[in-house]
Nucleic acid binder design. Sequence first.
DNA 1: GACCGCCGTCTAACAGCGTTCAAAAATCCG
DNA 2: CGGATTTTTGAACGCTGTTAGACGGCGGTC
Lengths: 221, 221
Amino acid sequence: MPLSPKSPGRAARRQSVGDHKRELILGAARRVFESEGLDGASLRAIAAEAGYTPAALYFHFDSKEAIYAEMLDISLGRLADAVLAAADAEAEPAGRLRAAALAFFAFYAENPRDLDLGFYLLRGGLKPKGLGRARDERLNAALAVALAPIGAGAEALGATPEAARLLVVDVFAHAVGLLLLTHTGRIRMFEASAPDLMRRYLDERVRGLLAGGAGLPDGRG
Amino acid sequence: MPLSPKSPGRAARRQSVGDHKRELILGAARRVFESEGLDGASLRAIAAEAGYTPAALYFHFDSKEAIYAEMLDISLGRLADAVLAAADAEAEPAGRLRAAALAFFAFYAENPRDLDLGFYLLRGGLKPKGLGRARDERLNAALAVALAPIGAGAEALGATPEAARLLVVDVFAHAVGLLLLTHTGRIRMFEASAPDLMRRYLDERVRGLLAGGAGLPDGRG
DNA sequence: GACCGCCGTCTAACAGCGTTCAAAAATCCG
DNA sequence: CGGATTTTTGAACGCTGTTAGACGGCGGTC
């Protein structure tokens, strides 16, 4: 122990003050991001909104991407909360499955900035350079939590674990595709209601589960 | 006619020389983009690769985005070619549908730079500011061409036009979602083979078409 | 009570970006 | 060749994320 702690509670208090300032900056980032968009949100604008000089942000975060990464963590946490709440409001497995998947879809449909953040990651941003490998672990963990009710619902309806996993993957991909294609508003095929498409898709998958034990067979061909 | 054409073939020759230089620049952009990625490809790098000074590019293109937009046009053209070729290699409607959809998927799975370009648009890039409204028309038209064989196959299998349209939309969204989620390689659920997932999904939809006349009912509920 | 050291922030600057503008070079035509 | 037009250039602008060094203030030690 090269450092002799000067006083017991000191480090902890420092830490909590530091955390508070990080949250202050993240809040400013969220506001600027909300009004300017992800690409339009400059570090200087975020710093100004937080009452700081740009350089000061580098004391609290390693980079601008680190701020985005932390915002994504928060976003995924809110997503998981929304999905779990929606699932818990239903009693029957089929209802829980549907509610969870629709809540996932609705979360991103109604919060385009969270969608931007997610797409930023998917498009290759937030590379784990200095962000640490742990970031990816957290990301996958949060995603697993948010999607868990879908798989659980499928298993409760009689699907094998493998079939349930495949259904989760399919629903996830379908939702992401619908969200992305609707998002720009410039692809004519997707000017129609995306939620309707999502509902229709889900209804069919649940019906398949109820009927045959699997909407799509896990052995193909 | 305020401009008196000095000689008949002159404007045409100018035009063709200009087109040639545009293609030269687009080729340089494609190469730089291939090795540096969309975000890493700077205008100065593209200009250097083409043997130009950055400012010279602005004589041939309105902006960097205009270069990207033109690259996207070319990309969508190649996509349509690949899809139509794959469909034409099959005789039966079901085979044509499957081949077209799988070719669409494979085109982007095997050409990540084209995928980047497409996602750049979906993420909000290539806004029709100075790019002109005509860009969006061309974009939608190219997409319609590339996806036409899927809808045609569905109708040949007995689907109503509306059901066929919905199937195209669904397949499109599913493919885009799978491509996007696989693309980063950082979402653990999608480390498995995306083509397999696409095939499985397609098989089921085609089976639904063959069985009931519609894989997913067009009246939901 | 004066001093030292660290923490948090600021000022100033860097290199890079897309873009613009006036001037120069190259090209073409009569 | 002369003059007009089309292309290209060099230099600059304002923006971006980021870094280095200096500065004030606060906590703990002598």
